[in-house]
C-alpha cells in the first residue's frame, strides 16, 4: 500500500492551472526526487500533499495514520519572536526533550538546542528544519528545495545525511530539487514535472570519468547523480521545456 497517492490531481490558482492530471504514488522507504523548471508546479504539488492547497480536481490520499515530516522551502522567523531551537523543535506537539536531542543528532547539529532561532546561520537553520521534520519519526519526509543556498559540498553532505536517515529509519523521501539534471544519487526515482509529469526514470550514478568530475567537483562522496531526460512529447508554445535545447546539444 502506498503512503501517499495522487490521482488525476489538478491545482489551479486564480484561473491559472499549475498542475494537471498528476498521478503519483509514494511507496514506503523509497526516495523520489522531483525536478522541473521554475513555475512547473513543484511546490504546489507538495502543498497539495500537506493539505495547504485544495485540489481543483482529483484526489490526494494519505495512508491511515501517516506521519509527515515537512521541510519548507523557506521560513522567515520575525526577529521580534524569541524562540530557542529546542522550543521550535517541540512545536506544536510538545515532544520530549530527549526526542529533540535525538533529532538534532540525526540532523548533525547536536549543540544548537539552546540557541535562538534568529541567531543561526543559513546552513544551521536548514539542519534545524530537517531536525524538526524528523522529530515525530515520520513515515515520509517532504523536502522543498532543502539544499537551496548551500554550496555543492554542502548539498552533497545534506544528501548523504538524507540517505543515511532513510537507511536508519526506513522513511520514504519526496524531495524537490532546484536543479534540472543534478540530483541525489540515492534517488530511486526521478520525476520531471512541468505542469504535468513529463518523464520519469532512475538517476545515472556519476562515474569517475573526468567530464563528470569537472561537473561535480571532487569530494561529494558519490552523493550526486545525473538525470538524463527522455521526453517523447512537445509542449505548446506557452509551455516550452527549458531543457529541450540542452538535450539537443548533448
Amino acid at each position: 500500500m502506498s503512503l501517499i497517492t495522487l490521482e488525476n490531481l489538478s491545482v489551479r490558482y486564480g484561473g491559472q492551472t499549475v498542475l494537471r492530471d498528476v498521478n503519483l504514488a509514494i511507496a514506503p522507504g523509497e526516495i523520489v526526487t522531483i525536478v522541473g523548471p521554475n513555475g512547473s508546479g513543484k511546490t504546489s504539488l507538495l502543498r497539495a500533499i500537506i493539505g495547504a492547497t485544495r485540489p481543483a480536481t482529483g484526489r490526494v490520499t494519505h495512508q491511515k495514520g501517516l506521519k509527515i515530516g515537512y521541510v519548507p522551502q523557506k521560513l522567515h522567523i520575525d526577529p521580534t519572536l524569541p524562540m530557542t531551537v529546542e522550543r521550535f523543535l517541540r512545536l506544536p506537539g510538545g515532544f520530549p526533550r530527549a526526542d529533540c536531542a535525538a533529532a538534532l543528532d540525526q540532523a548533525e547539529v547536536p549543540d544548537l538546542s539552546k540557541q535562538q532561532m534568529t541567531s543561526l546561520s543559513g546552513g544551521q537553520f536548514q539542519r534545524v528544519l530537517l531536525a524538526r521534520a524528523l522529530i515525530n519519526r515520520p513515515d515520509v519526509l517532504l523536502l522543498d528545495e532543502a539544499t537551496q543556498g548551500l554550496d555543492q559540498p554542502g548539498s552533497a553532505a545534506f544528501y548523504r545525511r538524507i540517505a543515511q536517515v532513510r537507511a536508519q529509519t526506513g522513511c520514504a523521501v519526496l524531495m524537490i530539487s532546484h536543479e534540472l539534471h543534478v540530483v541525489m544519487s540515492a534517488s530511486d526515482r526521478v520525476i520531471c514535472l512541468n505542469g504535468h509529469v513529463c518523464c520519469e526514470g532512475t538517476p545515472e550514478i556519476v562515474s569517475s570519468a573526468p567530464e563528470y568530475r569537472a561537473l561535480f567537483g571532487t569530494g561529494t562522496g558519490g552523493a550526486l547523480a545525473l538525470y538524463r531526460h527522455e521526453h517523447d512529447h512537445a509542449h505548446d508554445a506557452n509551455c516550452a521545456h527549458e531543457h529541450e535545447t540542452e538535450k539537443a546539444a548533448e
Partner: peptide, 19 residues
C-alpha cells in the same frame, strides 16, 4: 498557544502538522 505559534512561524508548517 502551540497551534498559534506554529501558524505564526509558517502556514505550510502548520498545515503539515495538521493545523
Amino acid at each position: 498557544w502551540s497551534s498559534l505559534l506554529t501558524a505564526t512561524l509558517s502556514d505550510d508548517l502548520a498545515y503539515a502538522s495538521g493545523i
